[in-house]
Computed example of a mutant assay.
Amino acid sequence: MIPHIVFVDRDSLPVPVPAFGFPHRYTEYAASTPAQLIERCHDADIIISNKVPFTAQTLAALPALKLLAIAATGYNHIDVEACRRQGVAVCNVRHYGDETVAEHAFMLMMALMRNLPAYQRDVAAGVWQNAAQFCHFGAPIRDLQGATLGIVGSGGIGQAMAQRARAFGMTVLFAERKGAAVVRDGYTGFDALLARADVLSLHCPLNDETRNLIAQPELMAMKPGAVLINTARGGLVDEEALVAALKFGQLGGAGFDVLSVEPPRDGNPLLKARLPHLIVTPHVGWASAEAMARLAAQLSGNINAWHAGERCNRLD
């Protein structure tokens, strides 16, 4: 029987996907809500999903499903244990955006350490034109050379971020797991890292252990004036607490490419803040043309490998 492949949120990957190397029937939808999944995927053998959630209840209503191919690295929206119980293989796409996301995080760090948004605002407001000197001295400007970067998450993106930071003369520390009793070689205790880092950059997955990893206590424990970068997942940080820390001057800046709910149709504390030392980008750190092409190729490769009974990036 020819397998039916359904891509439930095709518009989330705006590049061509290489052809699958076996006979199949293919259906795609620009986007899908969780409520539409059962109707659209009732006879699907293979489902491709980027960010559409699949709960145990939804999976139980899809008895034909054999493979759930995630068009991304993160899989916190998939009940992997339910897939395992149901015999559904799950695969994701890995390391396609390590360099790309690291570049985005590095860009945010540089802009905030130099207070670029604040100076852009001042120039637009005519402050420079009225300055008494040849330049306008506004928000503080700091060098990366000699500063300390703390990284949470030592995977591909974290390592790529570290490589770039060292090239700029920064000291790089990798954080041990929060609450860990033992600090591994090559890592720094979580609390000690918070106190030392001039910049803290998050590159870890979102799960039950990391949700609200950075909340009010952690923000207060950070080095005064430090910069917080998050290009991982929005749920890692308590957003209300972050805005308060920025407004009260505990932090020197924050750069976020992710929010707790995306898209933020009902608003978000970070979008309401409108602070010159806060940069929010719309989850595009991964979205260079080169990275998306690598993602699409690996996505197709995962499905072809699974169908051929070969090794793919399985999670289950």
Rank of each mutant, 00 (worst) to 15 (best):
S201Q: 02
P217C: 15
L202K: 09
G156L: 09
I157L: 05
A221N: 14
D198W: 03
R166S: 12
L219R: 03
A241H: 02
M170W: 15
A221H: 15
F190G: 04
G153D: 04
Q163P: 00
I229L: 00
P217N: 15
D185L: 00
T171P: 00
A226F: 06
T188E: 09
G156F: 09
P224H: 14
V172Q: 12
A167Y: 12
A244R: 01
V183E: 05
I157K: 10
R164M: 06
E209G: 05
K178L: 11
E209L: 09
N212P: 03
F168Q: 13
M222H: 08
M161G: 14
K223D: 00
R177S: 13
F248K: 09
F174E: 05
D198R: 12
R196I: 00
E239Q: 04
D198E: 15
A244K: 00
A226R: 07
T171D: 09
Q216S: 12
A226M: 04
N207H: 08
K247S: 06
A232N: 00
R177E: 09
D238W: 02
A245Q: 05
V183C: 06
T171V: 06
L219P: 05
R177A: 14
G169A: 13
K247W: 13
D191I: 06
N230I: 10
F190V: 14
R184V: 10
A197H: 08
G235R: 15
R166V: 14
L202Y: 11
A215C: 07
L219G: 07
N207Y: 09
D208C: 02
L219T: 00
R233Q: 09
F248E: 14
A226P: 03
Y187P: 04
T188L: 10
V227W: 02
A197M: 02
N212G: 01
R184A: 10
L246A: 08
R166Y: 15
F174V: 14
L173Y: 09
L202E: 02
A192L: 06
G225E: 13
R211T: 08
N207E: 08
F174K: 08
A226I: 04
A245K: 04
T231R: 01
L246H: 06
L194G: 11
E176F: 11
Q163G: 04
M222R: 04
G169I: 12
V243R: 03
N212R: 10
V199A: 10
G186W: 04
G153C: 06
L228D: 01
L219E: 01
E239F: 03
D191C: 00
E176A: 15
L202P: 01
L236R: 13
S201N: 09
G155C: 11
C204F: 09
V182G: 06
M170Q: 15
I214D: 01
